[in-house]
């Protein structure tokens, strides 16, 4: 196990002091990288935050183990994320960044690719959930978080059968959007 695995643990445990340490140590490097590739300081911080959240989601998968320095791994995740933003927004040439993203430091890269792809699919589903109407979002979220659906129905002022019907409809709308997005 790499010595920098501790940073993964900070994220996994939501350790505020550890997270501050990550920012103190790596934020300047990431923000500069983004600024050198057509981004602003805010873009840099946004990419850093989203990348740390992605790494957090990877870390809660039980077999995630860091095989290189945390800085190198974080840099890779941020570069890929920024590359996607640039491609999506069709901003400025990205040749240099693409070259450096394609450079891999060790042989774990394929496994990382798969993990990043998974996280990207998950992020897409969550973003599409936010585009549903408020009642659909509320129903889906509450039904996932709370065990007793009869109680959810009661607190929402609807019958249990109606809640189930609405939930089916909301899930069908979400799945339709997911299907249309082309990632799945």
């Amino acid at each position: 196990m790499h010595i920098d695995q501790i940073y993964i643990k900070y994220l996994k445990d939501n350790n505020s002091e550890g997270i501050q340490l990550i920012y103190n140590k790596y934020s300047k490097q990431i923000v500069t990288l983004i600024q050198q590739n057509s981004g602003s300081e805010d873009d840099g911080y946004d990419i850093l935050q989203e990348s740390l959240v992605d790494i957090y989601h990877m870390s809660i998968e039980k077999d995630f183990e860091l095989t290189t320095s945390f800085g190198a791994f974080l840099g890779l995740v941020c570069k890929r994320k920024w590359l996607n933003v640039l491609k999506k927004n069709q901003r400025m040439p990205v040749t240099n960044l693409e070259k450096s993203v394609l450079y891999v430091e060790d042989d774990s890269s394929q496994a990382w690719d798969e993990m990043l792809e998974t996280v990207n699919r998950e992020n897409t589903v969550m973003a599409l959930l936010d585009t549903l109407g408020e009642s659909c979002q509320q129903i889906i979220k509450r039904c996932m978080l709370e065990k007793h659906q009869e109680k959810i129905a009661e607190s929402m002022g609807i019958s249990y059968a109606y809640l189930r019907k609405k939930k089916s409809e909301c899930m069908a709308s979400l799945v339709k959007k997911v299907k249309e997005c082309g990632l799945f």
Binding site: S16, I19, Y23, S27, Q49, L52, Y56, H57, K141
Partner: peptide
């Protein structure tokens, strides 16, 4: 939805 992401985001926001 059960991952605790929103708690983590709070810490990241503060650190940022």
């Amino acid at each position: 939805l059960t991952s605790g992401e929103s708690d983590l985001r709070e810490s990241l926001f503060l650190a940022e």
